[in-house]
């Protein structure tokens, strides 16, 4: 029964028990469900459920976000290998941490969830120069540049998001490529994303995935 699978999977994800989550998925495959079913009917709804829980629960635990995203990402990778035809991609995102910032974990949550939501990720790693963000976004025809910054000086610095905005503006790319930001400084000041020239921000990595998917749709609608 699909409902049972969904319940058991959600329970495992809620408990951040990776081994248990994989056991549910393996059993489902053995029962004849397709990898496509598992992604679209189990994994993506589970992420949506987590988003709903996190938005309602301000005390939600960051360690659990990391583990949840990791499970989603690993399950997706495993299922994608078994897809009959390549999955339809929603869009592309280049992601990295701002210049001067080596905190790589925030963007992992975002990447993990986006991957499960069929968004292609180009991960540029940490301490990424503004020029590189823009060059890679053009090269991969990405709709969104996602910049993670965990420290005040990397979030607000001249060579971070502000410079990415300047480059997009100079090259006339602002309607084709949107900027999303995230990280602790943006939580302390919810208006900060505007100050540094971003189009959107999110308070946590899991809801950031939804913010980014919305930006992709915004670009694609034009």
């Amino acid at each position: 029964m699909l409902d049972d699978i969904i319940n058991h999977y959600n329970e495992a994800v809620f408990d951040t028990d990776k081994e248990a989550a994989f056991e549910v998925i393996d059993n489902a495959l053995a029962e004849g469900y397709t990898p496509e079913d598992i992604i679209f009917k189990v994994v993506i709804p589970a992420i949506n459920e987590m988003m709903a829980i996190i938005t309602k629960d301000p005390d939600a635990n960051l360690a659990q976000h990391f583990m949840t995203a990791q499970i989603a990402s690993e399950v997706t990778e495993k299922m994608l290998l078994q897809f009959k035809s390549p999955p339809e991609i929603v869009g592309r995102v280049v992601i990295g941490t701002a210049v001067g910032d080596l905190h790589s974990l925030g963007k992992r949550i975002v990447s993990g969830c986006l991957k499960a939501m069929m968004v292609e990720i180009i991960d540029l790693g940490v301490n990424v120069a503004a020029e590189r963000f823009v060059d890679e976004a053009i090269a991969h025809d990405a709709q969104v540049i996602a910049i993670s910054a965990m420290m005040v000086h990397s979030a607000t610095g001249e060579n971070g998001c502000r410079k990415v905005r300047k480059l997009l503006n100079e090259q006339g790319l602002e309607s084709r490529i949107k900027i999303a930001v995230g990280g602790a400084p943006f939580r302390f000041d919810p208006e900060l994303y505007k100050t540094v020239g971003a189009d959107a921000w999110a308070a946590d990595g899991i809801s950031a995935a939804k913010t980014i998917v919305d930006l992709i749709h915004e670009v694609n609608a034009k």
Binding site: A63, F66, L102
Partner: peptide, 18 residues
């Protein structure tokens, strides 16, 4: 060693959160 540049550090870290 700068752990930020060690491949696989993040995976190990998440594995160690439980």
């Amino acid at each position: 060693i700068n752990l930020s540049y060690v491949p696989g550090y993040d995976d190990l870290y998440i594995n160690n959160l439980r």
